[in-house]
């Protein structure tokens, strides 16, 4: 079941801008709506909402998590085959395949190139066929 936005929503657009699959629509200062067909239940909207206006798939109120505590994808370079599934799964264009270190270098791998954009949705890790990505860091203090 998809996430849901309650009438506590003040229409700040933060969730819509953060959603990695563009599943949230709504105008400024109006209640937003989640497209249940597209929602991947990553929880990003709940993590960013200042008004606790998001219900998760179990119907519970999602609690905001400070940005500093968000987990980030860490790629195991040795395991990664640079298949780029994660690069394409990322809706925020955070991941890239590394550039060759020298002419003829074919040992490249995926890495978090744009950390600021990362919303900690974990889609990359869930799609990785080799389980080479783990979401780490930002443990709750």
């Amino acid at each position: 079941m998809a996430y849901f936005i309650t009438e506590d929503c003040i229409g700040c657009t933060l969730c819509a801008r953060s959603c990695p699959v563009e599943a949230i629509a709504g105008k400024l200062k109006e209640r937003h709506v989640i497209n249940p067909k597209r929602c991947v239940e990553c929880g990003v909207c709940g993590n960013v909402c200042n008004n606790a206006a998001i219900l998760n798939s179990k119907g519970e109120k999602a609690v905001k998590i400070p940005k500093a505590e968000w987990k980030k994808p860490i790629v195991d370079k040795e395991l990664c085959s640079a298949c780029a599934i994660c690069v394409h799964a990322c809706g925020k264009d955070c991941l890239s395949i590394s550039l060759p270190q020298f002419r003829g270098d074919i040992k490249v791998f995926a890495y978090l190139a744009n950390e600021k954009q990362c919303v900690s949705c974990g889609l990359c890790a869930s799609y990785c066929p080799l389980h080479a990505i783990t979401m780490k860091g930002g443990e709750q203090k």
Partner: peptide
């Protein structure tokens, strides 16, 4: 091609061959 004009190799989504 690899010694002169190639900038890097790449591949389709999901491909480890690249």
């Amino acid at each position: 091609l690899a010694d002169t004009v190639l900038t890097r190799n790449s591949g389709c989504v999901s491909c480890p061959i690249r």
